[in-house]
Write a protein that binds this DNA or RNA. Structure first.
Lengths: 153, 153
DNA sequence: GCACTCCTGACCAAGAAGGTCAGGAAAGTC
DNA sequence: GACTTTCCTGACCTTCTTGGTCAGGAGTGC
């Protein structure tokens, strides 16, 4: 139940692209790497994956760089996480709806389904535009407004 | 953002222990392993971890076995997951409240905080007693009642 | 033709995941 | 006291993932 460096990097780079969308010019990988303090070569691999998933576009050469394939308010964090980490909330590498439990753990399936659903209510809701503007959906602000949410356990 | 085999096994074994709590006698590891189809020797390591975290107790020898250290309605799924997987929803192995973002990803911290909080609303709420009885908290049934929650993306 | 930038695959070290193996140490039974 | 049972513990193992680096190839623009 952790967020990988790759997913974190991917979202951060995408946020930079979202912010640069007004510029009408591609953003170089190097600039993204510096802005977010991400190892350049590693970032290039990540951007390539995002490109393969149709989230980002790119052009080579001088004046080349990366840009979002769609408007920033049409790209969700969930999409980006899935692109680099694969499906969200799989259990033992299988989707929760496909697991069959025996004995007294029968209802565990519903719990994992609920876990996935609750992740989705957050990740599917937040777009890159939200992230850049800071105007996050109420589901996020509600959850993050509790003092309790900010303390470790 | 996945659930490991270990966490899944741990919760399932704990559910069996919860169901056996009425029996007033320890449950052998072998019986747990069979009931939930878990490799016995691997399960023993997991149960040991649960013991070290004060969730389970054990006695050796004939008539020995495992039992819950507390009533089943006082043990949450969150506790068990943490015992075997470590902290929930860490980003790059650091807790979300400790990360410092630069540039246009500043608000990503709130998103990860919300992700963790949303996981907690599910995992902290479900107890082993709920799991065994099938009477899950409304937060779970609400989330899992949507058709959408059961389809992959 | 040349500089620039992305594209791609190979590689790599460390750690985690998912186990297995072998033996030791309590607890109960005869 | 011997013996059986069951947990306890650490060592080990294989495979995969994570988080990168390296080297070169291929478009693009001037």
């Amino acid at each position: 139940m952790r967020v990988s460096a790759k997913a974190d990097y991917a979202v951060r780079a995408a946020a930079e692209l979202a912010a640069a969308q007004a510029e009408e010019a591609p953003v170089k990988g190097e600039r993204l790497a510096e802005a977010q303090d991400i190892p350049l070569q590693f970032l290039e691999h990540i951007l390539l994956e995002l490109k393969h998933h149709g989230i980002v576009r790119a052009r080579r050469g001088a004046k080349g760089g990366y840009w979002l394939a769609r408007p920033a308010d049409e790209v969700t964090v969930a999409e980006i996480v899935r692109a680099v980490e694969g499906p969200i909330a799989h259990v033992q590498s299988t989707p929760p709806e496909a697991i069959e439990y025996r004995g007294h753990s029968e209802h565990l399936q519903e719990v994992w389904i609920a876990v996935r659903a609750s992740l989705r209510t957050v990740l599917e809701e937040v777009t890159l535009a939200d992230l850049v503007s800071g105007e996050l959906p109420s589901v996020v602000t509600d959850l993050a407004s509790s003092k309790d949410a900010w303390v470790a356990r």
